[in-house]
Computed example of a mutant assay.
Amino acid sequence: MRLPTLPGWDAPAFPAASSSASSAARSMLAALLVLGSSVVTPPAAIAKTDGAAIGKCLLKNCQIPLAKCVANPVCAANLLCIQTCTGRADEGDCQIRCGDAFSNDVVGDFTKCAVTDKKCVPQRADDGSWPVPSKEALVASFSPDMLTGPWYISAGYNKAFDTFDCQLHKFESPADNKLVGNLQWRIKDPVAGTNFVTRYTVQEFVQDKESPGILYNHDNEFLHYQDDWYVLAAKPEEYVLVYYRGENDAWVGYGGAVVYTRDPVFPKKYAKDMDVALQKVGLKFADFTLTDNSCRAAESKIEEAAADLVYVESKVAGGIQSVESGALNELTKDVKLLEAEIEMIGSTVGTELVVLEKEIEKDVVAIEGEVLKDERAVVDFFGGLLKKK
Rank of each mutant, 00 (worst) to 15 (best):
residue 192 A to V: 02
residue 82 I to D: 07
residue 222 F to G: 10
residue 353 L to G: 04
residue 27 S to N: 15
residue 334 D to E: 05
residue 130 W to V: 06
residue 355 V to I: 15
residue 233 A to W: 11
residue 195 N to G: 02
residue 357 E to S: 13
residue 232 L to H: 04
residue 240 V to Q: 10
residue 143 S to I: 02
residue 258 V to H: 07
residue 4 P to L: 08
residue 261 T to N: 00
residue 185 W to L: 00
residue 378 V to M: 13
residue 298 A to F: 05
residue 27 S to V: 05
residue 387 K to G: 08
residue 131 P to H: 08
residue 98 C to G: 09
residue 48 K to V: 12
residue 308 D to P: 00
residue 166 C to F: 03
residue 316 V to L: 13
residue 286 A to E: 15
residue 313 E to C: 03
residue 250 A to N: 10
residue 61 N to G: 05
residue 289 T to Q: 13
residue 270 Y to G: 09
residue 96 I to N: 08
residue 338 L to E: 04
residue 228 D to H: 08
residue 95 Q to E: 13
residue 341 E to C: 11
residue 226 Q to N: 12
residue 315 K to W: 11
residue 107 V to N: 03
residue 50 D to S: 04
residue 131 P to R: 10
residue 226 Q to I: 00
residue 74 V to Y: 01
residue 163 T to L: 11
residue 148 T to K: 11
residue 275 D to W: 05
residue 244 Y to M: 07
residue 331 L to A: 03
residue 310 V to R: 15
residue 226 Q to D: 13
residue 212 P to K: 00
residue 191 V to K: 06
residue 107 V to R: 02
residue 95 Q to R: 15
residue 330 E to M: 11
residue 38 S to D: 04
residue 343 E to I: 08
residue 195 N to A: 09
residue 168 L to F: 06
residue 227 D to M: 07
residue 68 K to E: 05
